[in-house]
Design a protein around this nucleic acid. Structure first.
Lengths: 158, 158
DNA sequence: CGGGAATACTTGAGCCCTCAAGGAGTGTTC
DNA sequence: GAACACTCCTTGAGGGCTCAAGTATTCCCG
Protein backbone atom coordinates (compact mmCIF):
# COMPACT_ATOMS: atom_id res chain seq x y z
CA UNK A 1 0.00 0.00 0.00
CA UNK A 2 2.25 2.79 -1.29
CA UNK A 3 1.15 5.18 1.41
CA UNK A 4 1.18 8.62 -0.13
CA UNK A 5 0.62 10.25 -3.50
CA UNK A 6 3.70 11.15 -5.50
CA UNK A 7 3.84 14.65 -7.01
CA UNK A 8 2.31 13.64 -10.33
CA UNK A 9 -0.58 11.80 -8.71
CA UNK A 10 -1.10 14.68 -6.30
CA UNK A 11 -1.10 17.17 -9.17
CA UNK A 12 -3.65 15.17 -11.14
CA UNK A 13 -5.96 14.69 -8.17
CA UNK A 14 -5.82 18.16 -6.67
CA UNK A 15 -5.98 19.98 -9.97
CA UNK A 16 -9.03 18.01 -10.97
CA UNK A 17 -10.78 18.90 -7.72
CA UNK A 18 -9.78 22.56 -7.98
CA UNK A 19 -10.64 22.98 -11.64
CA UNK A 20 -13.98 21.26 -11.17
CA UNK A 21 -14.92 23.48 -8.23
CA UNK A 22 -13.85 26.66 -9.99
CA UNK A 23 -15.60 25.66 -13.19
CA UNK A 24 -18.90 24.78 -11.58
CA UNK A 25 -18.88 27.98 -9.56
CA UNK A 26 -18.38 30.20 -12.59
CA UNK A 27 -20.82 28.27 -14.80
CA UNK A 28 -23.45 28.42 -12.10
CA UNK A 29 -23.05 32.13 -11.50
CA UNK A 30 -23.21 32.90 -15.23
CA UNK A 31 -26.31 30.75 -15.60
CA UNK A 32 -28.04 32.37 -12.65
CA UNK A 33 -27.15 35.88 -13.76
CA UNK A 34 -28.15 35.42 -17.40
CA UNK A 35 -31.14 33.11 -17.08
CA UNK A 36 -32.17 32.84 -13.42
CA UNK A 37 -31.51 29.11 -13.54
CA UNK A 38 -29.56 27.05 -11.03
CA UNK A 39 -27.14 24.53 -12.48
CA UNK A 40 -29.24 21.91 -10.68
CA UNK A 41 -32.44 23.10 -12.34
CA UNK A 42 -30.68 23.28 -15.68
CA UNK A 43 -29.57 19.66 -15.32
CA UNK A 44 -33.14 18.60 -14.62
CA UNK A 45 -34.30 20.38 -17.76
CA UNK A 46 -31.56 18.77 -19.87
CA UNK A 47 -32.43 15.31 -18.61
CA UNK A 48 -36.13 15.78 -19.21
CA UNK A 49 -35.58 17.21 -22.69
CA UNK A 50 -33.52 14.15 -23.65
CA UNK A 51 -36.06 11.67 -22.30
CA UNK A 52 -38.78 10.10 -24.46
CA UNK A 53 -41.92 12.19 -24.16
CA UNK A 54 -39.92 14.81 -22.25
CA UNK A 55 -40.94 13.07 -19.04
CA UNK A 56 -39.15 10.97 -16.45
CA UNK A 57 -40.05 9.13 -13.27
CA UNK A 58 -38.92 10.89 -10.11
CA UNK A 59 -36.67 8.03 -9.11
CA UNK A 60 -34.94 7.87 -12.50
CA UNK A 61 -34.36 11.59 -12.28
CA UNK A 62 -32.96 11.14 -8.76
CA UNK A 63 -30.47 8.53 -9.98
CA UNK A 64 -29.25 10.69 -12.84
CA UNK A 65 -28.75 13.68 -10.58
CA UNK A 66 -27.21 11.76 -7.68
CA UNK A 67 -30.03 12.99 -5.45
CA UNK A 68 -31.96 11.27 -2.68
CA UNK A 69 -35.71 10.64 -3.09
CA UNK A 70 -36.59 13.55 -0.87
CA UNK A 71 -34.03 15.72 -2.61
CA UNK A 72 -35.71 15.23 -5.97
CA UNK A 73 -39.15 15.84 -4.45
CA UNK A 74 -38.05 19.18 -3.06
CA UNK A 75 -36.22 20.27 -6.17
CA UNK A 76 -39.29 19.49 -8.25
CA UNK A 77 -41.39 21.48 -5.76
CA UNK A 78 -39.38 24.56 -6.59
CA UNK A 79 -39.37 23.98 -10.32
CA UNK A 80 -43.12 23.32 -10.39
CA UNK A 81 -43.64 26.57 -8.51
CA UNK A 82 -41.60 28.35 -11.20
CA UNK A 83 -43.59 26.65 -13.94
CA UNK A 84 -40.59 24.85 -15.48
CA UNK A 85 -41.95 21.34 -14.99
CA UNK A 86 -45.23 19.70 -14.05
CA UNK A 87 -46.00 16.61 -12.04
CA UNK A 88 -48.13 13.94 -13.65
CA UNK A 89 -49.18 10.70 -12.00
CA UNK A 90 -48.25 7.64 -14.04
CA UNK A 91 -51.11 5.54 -15.34
CA UNK A 92 -48.93 2.43 -15.52
CA UNK A 93 -47.90 2.41 -11.88
CA UNK A 94 -49.86 4.47 -9.43
CA UNK A 95 -46.90 4.81 -7.06
CA UNK A 96 -45.01 6.73 -9.72
CA UNK A 97 -44.92 10.46 -10.35
CA UNK A 98 -43.65 11.68 -13.70
CA UNK A 99 -41.88 14.99 -14.10
CA UNK A 100 -42.85 16.59 -17.41
CA UNK A 101 -41.21 19.48 -19.18
CA UNK A 102 -43.65 22.38 -19.58
CA UNK A 103 -43.52 24.66 -22.62
CA UNK A 104 -42.08 27.33 -20.40
CA UNK A 105 -39.45 24.89 -19.13
CA UNK A 106 -38.48 23.96 -22.66
CA UNK A 107 -38.25 27.63 -23.55
CA UNK A 108 -36.01 28.30 -20.55
CA UNK A 109 -33.74 25.44 -21.53
CA UNK A 110 -33.55 26.54 -25.16
CA UNK A 111 -32.66 30.04 -24.05
CA UNK A 112 -30.02 28.93 -21.56
CA UNK A 113 -28.36 26.03 -23.37
CA UNK A 114 -26.32 28.01 -25.93
CA UNK A 115 -24.92 30.28 -23.24
CA UNK A 116 -24.13 27.34 -21.01
CA UNK A 117 -22.37 25.44 -23.78
CA UNK A 118 -20.47 28.55 -24.70
CA UNK A 119 -19.39 28.82 -21.07
CA UNK A 120 -18.16 25.23 -21.03
CA UNK A 121 -16.12 26.04 -24.11
CA UNK A 122 -14.76 29.33 -22.89
CA UNK A 123 -13.84 28.19 -19.39
CA UNK A 124 -12.78 24.63 -20.14
CA UNK A 125 -12.57 23.17 -23.64
CA UNK A 126 -10.88 26.18 -25.23
CA UNK A 127 -7.88 25.69 -22.96
CA UNK A 128 -7.33 22.17 -24.25
CA UNK A 129 -6.05 20.70 -27.50
CA UNK A 130 -8.13 18.20 -29.39
CA UNK A 131 -5.74 15.48 -28.25
CA UNK A 132 -6.11 16.52 -24.63
CA UNK A 133 -9.89 16.43 -24.97
CA UNK A 134 -9.73 12.92 -26.40
CA UNK A 135 -7.32 11.79 -23.68
CA UNK A 136 -9.51 13.27 -20.97
CA UNK A 137 -12.58 11.46 -22.26
CA UNK A 138 -10.63 8.22 -22.50
CA UNK A 139 -9.23 8.57 -18.99
CA UNK A 140 -12.61 9.25 -17.40
CA UNK A 141 -14.17 6.44 -19.39
CA UNK A 142 -11.45 4.15 -18.01
CA UNK A 143 -12.31 5.25 -14.46
CA UNK A 144 -15.99 4.62 -15.06
CA UNK A 145 -15.32 1.17 -16.52
CA UNK A 146 -12.88 0.36 -13.73
CA UNK A 147 -15.33 1.36 -11.02
CA UNK A 148 -18.14 -0.59 -12.65
CA UNK A 149 -15.89 -3.65 -12.76
CA UNK A 150 -14.79 -3.09 -9.14
CA UNK A 151 -18.38 -2.84 -7.96
CA UNK A 152 -19.17 -6.15 -9.64
CA UNK A 153 -16.08 -7.85 -8.15
CA UNK A 154 -16.39 -10.54 -5.44
CA UNK A 155 -14.39 -8.86 -2.65
CA UNK A 156 -16.72 -5.88 -2.58
CA UNK A 157 -18.13 -4.96 0.82
CA UNK A 158 -21.40 -3.62 -0.64
CA UNK B 1 -19.48 30.31 -32.15
CA UNK B 2 -19.66 26.62 -33.03
CA UNK B 3 -22.98 26.12 -31.30
CA UNK B 4 -22.88 22.66 -29.82
CA UNK B 5 -20.39 20.20 -28.44
CA UNK B 6 -19.24 17.44 -30.75
CA UNK B 7 -19.24 13.86 -29.38
CA UNK B 8 -15.66 13.98 -28.14
CA UNK B 9 -16.13 17.28 -26.35
CA UNK B 10 -19.40 16.05 -24.88
CA UNK B 11 -17.76 12.84 -23.70
CA UNK B 12 -14.91 14.71 -22.03
CA UNK B 13 -17.21 17.19 -20.31
CA UNK B 14 -19.96 14.87 -19.16
CA UNK B 15 -17.64 12.10 -18.06
CA UNK B 16 -15.64 14.54 -15.98
CA UNK B 17 -18.78 15.77 -14.26
CA UNK B 18 -20.08 12.26 -13.68
CA UNK B 19 -16.80 10.78 -12.48
CA UNK B 20 -16.23 13.70 -10.15
CA UNK B 21 -19.68 13.40 -8.60
CA UNK B 22 -19.43 9.64 -8.19
CA UNK B 23 -15.94 9.87 -6.76
CA UNK B 24 -16.74 12.54 -4.21
CA UNK B 25 -19.83 10.68 -3.07
CA UNK B 26 -17.97 7.44 -2.46
CA UNK B 27 -14.95 9.11 -0.83
CA UNK B 28 -17.23 11.10 1.44
CA UNK B 29 -19.25 8.10 2.51
CA UNK B 30 -16.13 6.04 3.22
CA UNK B 31 -14.64 8.88 5.24
CA UNK B 32 -17.79 9.39 7.26
CA UNK B 33 -18.24 5.70 7.91
CA UNK B 34 -14.62 5.02 8.90
CA UNK B 35 -13.71 8.25 10.70
CA UNK B 36 -16.84 10.30 11.28
CA UNK B 37 -15.35 13.10 9.19
CA UNK B 38 -17.03 15.05 6.42
CA UNK B 39 -14.99 15.63 3.29
CA UNK B 40 -15.40 19.33 4.05
CA UNK B 41 -14.03 18.94 7.56
CA UNK B 42 -11.21 16.77 6.27
CA UNK B 43 -10.24 19.49 3.79
CA UNK B 44 -10.11 22.06 6.58
CA UNK B 45 -7.81 19.77 8.56
CA UNK B 46 -5.53 19.20 5.56
CA UNK B 47 -5.24 22.92 4.90
CA UNK B 48 -4.50 23.74 8.52
CA UNK B 49 -1.94 20.96 8.81
CA UNK B 50 -0.07 22.31 5.79
CA UNK B 51 -0.09 25.92 7.03
CA UNK B 52 2.78 27.40 9.05
CA UNK B 53 2.02 27.00 12.75
CA UNK B 54 -0.95 24.81 11.81
CA UNK B 55 -3.13 27.92 11.84
CA UNK B 56 -4.85 30.01 9.19
CA UNK B 57 -6.95 33.17 9.06
CA UNK B 58 -10.65 32.51 8.53
CA UNK B 59 -10.69 34.43 5.28
CA UNK B 60 -7.71 32.54 3.85
CA UNK B 61 -9.40 29.30 4.76
CA UNK B 62 -12.59 30.53 3.08
CA UNK B 63 -10.71 31.23 -0.15
CA UNK B 64 -9.04 27.83 -0.24
CA UNK B 65 -12.33 26.04 0.34
CA UNK B 66 -14.41 28.20 -2.02
CA UNK B 67 -16.64 29.13 0.91
CA UNK B 68 -18.33 32.40 1.82
CA UNK B 69 -17.32 34.22 5.02
CA UNK B 70 -20.40 33.03 6.84
CA UNK B 71 -19.88 29.55 5.47
CA UNK B 72 -16.45 29.27 7.02
CA UNK B 73 -17.72 30.69 10.32
CA UNK B 74 -20.42 28.05 10.54
CA UNK B 75 -18.18 25.19 9.50
CA UNK B 76 -15.66 26.20 12.14
CA UNK B 77 -18.50 26.34 14.68
CA UNK B 78 -19.14 22.69 14.11
CA UNK B 79 -15.49 21.67 14.13
CA UNK B 80 -14.79 23.67 17.29
CA UNK B 81 -17.72 21.91 18.97
CA UNK B 82 -16.17 18.58 17.99
CA UNK B 83 -12.78 19.69 19.31
CA UNK B 84 -10.99 19.41 15.94
CA UNK B 85 -9.94 23.05 15.75
CA UNK B 86 -9.83 26.05 18.05
CA UNK B 87 -10.38 29.73 17.40
CA UNK B 88 -7.64 32.13 18.41
CA UNK B 89 -7.81 35.90 17.99
CA UNK B 90 -4.85 37.27 16.06
CA UNK B 91 -2.55 39.62 17.96
CA UNK B 92 -1.38 41.30 14.73
CA UNK B 93 -4.79 42.35 13.53
CA UNK B 94 -7.64 42.33 15.99
CA UNK B 95 -10.27 41.87 13.28
CA UNK B 96 -8.79 38.48 12.44
CA UNK B 97 -9.65 35.09 13.87
CA UNK B 98 -7.19 32.25 13.42
CA UNK B 99 -8.29 28.66 13.12
CA UNK B 100 -5.78 26.40 14.87
CA UNK B 101 -5.46 22.64 14.62
CA UNK B 102 -5.97 21.03 18.03
CA UNK B 103 -4.07 17.87 19.04
CA UNK B 104 -7.30 15.96 18.62
CA UNK B 105 -7.79 17.50 15.17
CA UNK B 106 -4.27 16.50 14.14
CA UNK B 107 -4.92 12.99 15.44
CA UNK B 108 -8.17 12.75 13.47
CA UNK B 109 -6.37 13.85 10.32
CA UNK B 110 -3.51 11.42 10.82
CA UNK B 111 -5.97 8.61 11.34
CA UNK B 112 -8.09 9.49 8.31
CA UNK B 113 -5.48 10.53 5.76
CA UNK B 114 -4.10 7.07 4.87
CA UNK B 115 -7.60 5.72 4.30
CA UNK B 116 -8.58 8.73 2.25
CA UNK B 117 -5.48 8.51 0.08
CA UNK B 118 -6.04 4.81 -0.35
CA UNK B 119 -9.59 5.61 -1.48
CA UNK B 120 -8.34 8.12 -4.04
CA UNK B 121 -6.04 5.43 -5.39
CA UNK B 122 -8.59 2.66 -5.39
CA UNK B 123 -11.44 4.63 -6.93
CA UNK B 124 -9.46 6.86 -9.27
CA UNK B 125 -5.72 6.60 -9.81
CA UNK B 126 -5.61 2.82 -10.02
CA UNK B 127 -7.81 2.94 -13.12
CA UNK B 128 -5.29 5.13 -14.96
CA UNK B 129 -1.89 4.53 -16.48
CA UNK B 130 1.05 6.68 -15.46
CA UNK B 131 0.82 8.45 -18.80
CA UNK B 132 -2.87 9.18 -18.28
CA UNK B 133 -2.15 10.61 -14.85
CA UNK B 134 0.53 12.88 -16.29
CA UNK B 135 -1.76 13.95 -19.14
CA UNK B 136 -4.59 14.66 -16.74
CA UNK B 137 -2.39 16.85 -14.56
CA UNK B 138 -1.11 18.68 -17.62
CA UNK B 139 -4.60 19.24 -19.00
CA UNK B 140 -5.98 20.64 -15.76
CA UNK B 141 -2.90 22.78 -15.31
CA UNK B 142 -3.54 24.17 -18.79
CA UNK B 143 -7.12 25.01 -17.83
CA UNK B 144 -5.95 26.73 -14.66
CA UNK B 145 -3.34 28.74 -16.56
CA UNK B 146 -5.80 29.58 -19.30
CA UNK B 147 -8.42 30.79 -16.84
CA UNK B 148 -5.88 32.85 -14.93
CA UNK B 149 -4.81 34.48 -18.20
CA UNK B 150 -8.44 35.04 -19.22
CA UNK B 151 -9.25 36.70 -15.92
CA UNK B 152 -6.35 39.08 -16.39
CA UNK B 153 -7.35 39.90 -19.98
CA UNK B 154 -8.77 43.33 -20.95
CA UNK B 155 -12.14 42.23 -22.35
CA UNK B 156 -13.15 40.67 -19.08
CA UNK B 157 -16.47 41.82 -17.65
CA UNK B 158 -15.35 41.37 -14.03
C1' DC C 1 -55.77 -15.48 -2.94
C1' DG C 2 -53.26 -13.42 1.12
C1' DG C 3 -49.46 -11.53 3.57
C1' DG C 4 -44.77 -9.89 3.61
C1' DA C 5 -41.06 -7.67 1.06
C1' DA C 6 -39.95 -4.26 -2.05
C1' DT C 7 -40.60 0.17 -4.48
C1' DA C 8 -42.13 5.15 -5.09
C1' DC C 9 -42.96 9.26 -3.22
C1' DT C 10 -43.77 12.77 0.59
C1' DT C 11 -43.06 15.00 5.07
C1' DG C 12 -40.66 16.58 9.43
C1' DA C 13 -36.43 17.57 11.62
C1' DG C 14 -32.09 19.16 11.10
C1' DC C 15 -27.50 20.33 8.83
C1' DC C 16 -24.90 23.28 5.87
C1' DC C 17 -24.57 26.79 2.93
C1' DT C 18 -25.80 31.58 1.01
C1' DC C 19 -27.04 36.52 1.05
C1' DA C 20 -27.86 40.77 3.54
C1' DA C 21 -26.91 43.41 7.39
C1' DG C 22 -24.18 44.87 11.21
C1' DG C 23 -20.22 45.48 14.66
C1' DA C 24 -15.49 45.94 15.23
C1' DG C 25 -10.82 47.16 13.69
C1' DT C 26 -7.50 49.17 10.28
C1' DG C 27 -5.61 52.57 6.93
C1' DT C 28 -5.75 56.50 4.41
C1' DT C 29 -6.38 61.12 3.30
C1' DC C 30 -6.55 65.77 4.00
C1' DG D 1 -6.61 63.33 14.22
C1' DA D 2 -11.34 62.81 12.32
C1' DA D 3 -13.88 60.91 8.96
C1' DC D 4 -14.46 57.61 5.22
C1' DA D 5 -13.59 53.50 2.93
C1' DC D 6 -12.27 48.99 3.46
C1' DT D 7 -11.51 44.38 5.55
C1' DC D 8 -12.73 40.62 8.79
C1' DC D 9 -15.94 38.16 11.11
C1' DT D 10 -20.60 37.01 12.96
C1' DT D 11 -25.69 36.71 12.97
C1' DG D 12 -30.59 36.22 11.16
C1' DA D 13 -33.37 34.57 7.53
C1' DG D 14 -34.00 31.35 4.17
C1' DG D 15 -32.96 27.70 0.49
C1' DG D 16 -31.50 23.07 -0.61
C1' DC D 17 -30.13 18.69 0.77
C1' DT D 18 -30.15 14.33 3.83
C1' DC D 19 -31.96 10.85 6.94
C1' DA D 20 -35.79 8.68 9.20
C1' DA D 21 -40.41 7.70 9.18
C1' DG D 22 -44.88 7.19 7.05
C1' DT D 23 -48.36 6.20 3.22
C1' DA D 24 -49.63 4.08 -0.96
C1' DT D 25 -48.96 0.75 -4.40
C1' DT D 26 -47.02 -3.28 -6.58
C1' DC D 27 -44.52 -7.64 -6.65
C1' DC D 28 -43.57 -12.27 -5.14
C1' DC D 29 -44.40 -16.71 -3.45
C1' DG D 30 -46.31 -20.23 -1.06
Amino acid sequence: MAAWLDPEEMAAWRSMVDVHAELMAVLESELVRAHGLTLGDYTVLVNLSEAPGERLRMCDLANRLHLSPSGITRRLDGMVKHGLVAREPSTDDRRVMLAVLTPSGRAALEAAAPDHVEGVRRHFLDHLSRTQIRNLAAAFAAVERGEARRRAAPGDAA
